[in-house]
Structure formats: C-alpha cells, structure tokens
Simulated assay, not measured.
Amino acid sequence: MPTVNAKDGCPINYQVEGPAGAPVLMLCNSLGTDLHMWDDQAAEWAKHFRLVRYDRRGHGQSGGPKGPYTMDMLGTDALAVADAAGAKTFNWCGLSMGGMVGQWMGANARDRVGKLVLSNTHYHYADKQPWNDRVKFARDNGLEKMSGPMMERWFTKEFRERSKDAVAKVVKMFNGTKLEGFVGCSEAVRDMDFSKSTPTITAPTMVIVGSKDPATLPEYGQEIAKMIKGAKVTSLDAAHLSNIEQPKAYTETVLNFLKG
C-alpha cells in the first residue's frame, strides 16, 4: 500500500480503490481500528466512488510517533492523504474518531468537502477524567487488557455472541494499535472542543447514531445534527461500531445519502 508523509514526517498508510473518474469518498476509522474496519462496506461503495481509506497515525501500518496529537494534526494528516490520492474534493464518512476528524474537515476544509457522514461520534467531552483514566490504564497495562471491556462498549451482547469472528477481527486491530498512537489519539479526543466550529459546517450532513451505543450516546449525535443546518439523523439498531454490527443497513444508508 502507498504511504504519504504528514507534515511532521509521520508516514500515513492509505489505500485507493474504485473507478478513477468517480467522485471520491474518504473513510476515517474509529480509535483503535485500522482501514480494514470498512471491509464490509468497501466492495459496494467502490462500485460508485473512488474510495480512499487510511490508517490514522498510531494505527495499522502508519507511523506512531510519541504525542501529543491534536485534532488539527489529525485533520492535516487526512488532507495529506487526500492530496496524495489526487482528491481535490471528496465526500467523507467517519465513525467515532473519524466523525470527529470529519467535523474538523467540514469546518476547516469546507472548499474540499462535498457531503459529510458523521457516525457514532461526539463534539466535546466536558468531563476529561474517563479519558485520563483510559490513558493511564493503557500505559500501565497495555492494550490487550483493554480489548475485552472495549468490545463490550463497541458491540451489543447479542452481536458479540453471534458474530465472534467479526469481533475477533476488531480485537486484532485494537491489539495491533501502537500504544503511543492510542494514547496520543485518546488525548486528542479528550481535548477537542468543536462546539463553536461544528455549527459553521455548511456541507450536506448525515449523522448516524447507534440506538444502543454506550460510547457515543445517541443524544450526542442528535446534538451535532442540531448544530449543523439541514443535517439529517439516522438511527441504527447497534452499539458503537454500527457499520460492523449492521453492515448492510449501514452500507445502504450511507450510499442512499451520498447518491441522493
């Protein structure tokens, strides 16, 4: 897979598929996953779009320099990928952290963004302590000891029991995340505040929430939708990683919005 160097030299791994002349759709993952998070969607979406997905710094095959990381840094990383892929303009679909970077993109690179999908995400954490606790636990114990509790937040009990292979794939991605990457990204999420910038987004936006999501509560998505003029909200019967728990519904929901 190709790589591009970010502003600070960090290599960012990315992948491009789909017709060369089609509109571009950039995909952005959650914390603790890599570009294969979108494998259930990629084949169908690549029929309609030039698909660009990448590993955020500290994840997958990208570099993982020591932090601190910021949302500005992560946003400019994504723009470096878009530039390398030849995407002057693009649609964006991001889940969790990917939706946070999407909000940054919609507010700071509005001339480049077509339509925005912000999925299972938030715009500001007033209470920083849970993120401080998560960082401390990761540093003290490593990511493998976190994977069990994280899967309980990311998927419903029913899905974990019936789709063990899908969950195991996510556990492997999570455990393969670089510690400094997990910590740096967690701190970027902890410190973000898009309460003033998200209302300036003008791109047509759809917000996806998981009705059973304990990580980014459905009301967080509702609040984001209220902040963006004309934004639509779609609720899926899922926990946090709704594109994996409800792959068909997610694929169709995003495709209908982007092509509508």
Rank of each mutant, 00 (worst) to 15 (best):
Q15W: 13
L179H: 10
H48W: 05
K66N: 13
L179T: 08
M100E: 09
E17L: 11
L118C: 06
D55A: 06
K226T: 00
M206C: 15
I244G: 04
A166M: 14
L118D: 04
G114L: 08
L51R: 06
T33W: 05
K212H: 12
S197Y: 03
H240V: 05
V189T: 12
G148S: 04
D111G: 15
K88T: 15
A225G: 09
G32F: 08
H122I: 12
D77V: 04
V171L: 14
G64W: 02
G99L: 02
T89I: 08
K196Y: 02
D140F: 06
W92S: 01
F49H: 12
M73V: 06
L79S: 02
G260I: 09
S147D: 08
F137N: 05
F155G: 02
V135S: 08
V189K: 01
P204F: 02
S235F: 02
M73N: 05
L217E: 06
K88Q: 14
N132S: 11
Q222H: 10
K196P: 00
V113L: 11
I224Y: 00
M151H: 06
R153N: 08
N141H: 12
V81S: 07
F90M: 10
L116M: 13
A203Q: 07
Y125M: 13
L143M: 09
K128H: 15
Y54P: 08
L258A: 10
R134F: 07
D40A: 11
T89M: 04
Q222S: 13
D193C: 05
M97I: 09
L241C: 11
K115S: 04
F194W: 12
I201M: 01
M105C: 15
L217R: 14
I12Y: 05
M151P: 01
A215R: 03
W104K: 00
Y220E: 14
D40L: 15
N29R: 03
R190Y: 07
A42V: 11
N132V: 11
A46M: 06
D237Q: 11
